[in-house]
């Protein structure tokens, strides 16, 4: 999901900040950031540089794996700030790639909306490693002509009435999460061994009702557009927006069982050389005005502004590192092979 979200945002943004050339004056030079698309809009960077005298160098990653590889290569010395998603932040902490935040220096923390102040994702052993910046969900895209009211349950995807008109992601991890959410498991990211067969059966039933699986954001919207699809387990809010732009009358729902959410936090690299600059950027970016602008420009939910943001944050299950990815892949392969 992360990869496509980034690709899409990149296209929408259309512009990228790279090394900004500017004479080094005033306070301490360059802030180097390893982030996702949409987290350093050129307009914000210009404001920041004018206000503080720092310069910004942003490097955009395409996957968490790539981030980890880049950070490990230099022990984090190449970056001051890293934007980390909630599913991989534990790895960053375990591998000592990021370092605890000094809350006394993070004056912008008060700007966070209450939901995100209380978000436990970046806290390990009582110590805070990151400050939430942006979020999104993996919801249900539905055809409004078929469903005048947003579907209340994911079970609608299993309904034989819509056989052959439903599409779903071809992703092991997200499907196991969906199955776990459908079964109402307490913790969808910590599936017990005896629960896997139940999830497998559930997903195998869904397979029979699907038109096809899709891999990637664009593939999902294309398949929806080219066939008479009415329901999609989507890769995020942007899927509905992209389809609406193509002229399809679709809605985006978070069913009552809940849905998967992703949450990215800004963290301080263990090898940061410009710590002052890093805090300056965090304090600068975490303002309602930039949060609202991010939602407007890139469609991400913001942690500092509810302006234009959806109201379903409380129903999202924030992605955590799952119990056993290899096991999830094995179960998913069994579902895909039709061996059930």
């Amino acid at each position: 999901m992360a990869l496509t979200r980034r690709g899409m945002a990149g296209m929408i943004a259309g512009a990228m900040v790279t090394a900004t050339l500017r004479p080094a004056f005033a306070a301490g030079g360059e802030v180097r950031m390893l982030i996702w698309d949409g987290y350093a809009d050129p307009e914000w960077v210009a404001d920041f540089e004018k206000q503080t005298g720092y310069t910004v160098r942003a490097t955009y990653a395409t996957s968490a794996d790539e981030q980890i590889a880049k950070m490990k290569a230099s022990g984090g010395k190449d970056y001051d700030i890293v934007a980390v998603d909630s599913a991989s932040i534990k790895t960053f902490v375990d591998q000592k790639l990021i370092t605890p935040l000094d809350m006394a220096r993070l004056s912008s923390f008060d700007n966070l909306l209450p939901d995100f102040k209380n978000f436990q994702g970046p806290i390990f052993g009582g110590v805070r490693y990151g400050v939430p910046l942006a979020w999104g969900s993996l919801g249900l895209v539905y055809d409004k002509a078929t469903f005048p009211e947003p579907p209340k349950s994911w079970a609608v995807m299993w309904d034989p009435k819509y056989k052959g008109r439903v599409i779903s992601q071809d992703d092991a991890n997200n499907n196991i999460n969906l199955g776990a959410i459908m079964l109402g498991l307490d913790d969808p990211f910590n599936v017990k061994p005896d629960e896997f067969p139940l999830i497998r059966t559930k997903l195998a039933e869904l397979r029979g009702n699907l038109l096809t699986y899709f891999a990637g954001f664009d593939e999902g919207t294309t398949l929806f557009a080219e066939n008479n699809v009415v329901l999609m387990f989507s890769m995020g809010e942007l899927s509905a927006i992209a389809l609406q732009k193509k002229g399809f009358d679709v809605g985006y729902a978070i069913p009552d069982e809940g849905a998967l959410g992703w949450m990215d936090s800004l963290t301080l690299s263990a090898g940061a050389t410009n710590v002052d600059g890093a805090y300056a950027w965090m304090n600068f970016l975490l303002q309602a005005k930039y949060g609202a602008d991010m939602t407007k420009k890139f469609g991400y939910g913001s942690t500092t502004s509810a302006e234009g943001a959806p109201d379903y944050t409380s129903r999202l299950k924030w992605a955590k590192p799952p119990e056993d990815l290899a096991m999830r892949q094995t179960v998913w392969n069994e579902v895909r092979s039709g061996a059930n």
């Binding site: 992703d171 096809t212 699986y213 990815l325 290899a326 892949q329 094995t330 039709g338």
Partner: peptide
């Protein structure tokens, strides 16, 4: 197979591929 095979589009090449994704085996 992935693009036109729908739910039946799971071939041996896909299984190989799957081990290099999240399974990272």
């Amino acid at each position: 197979p992935t693009m036109v095979g729908g739910t039946e589009g799971f071939t041996f090449g896909r299984i190989v591929f799957s081990q290099f994704g999240v399974a990272l085996n």
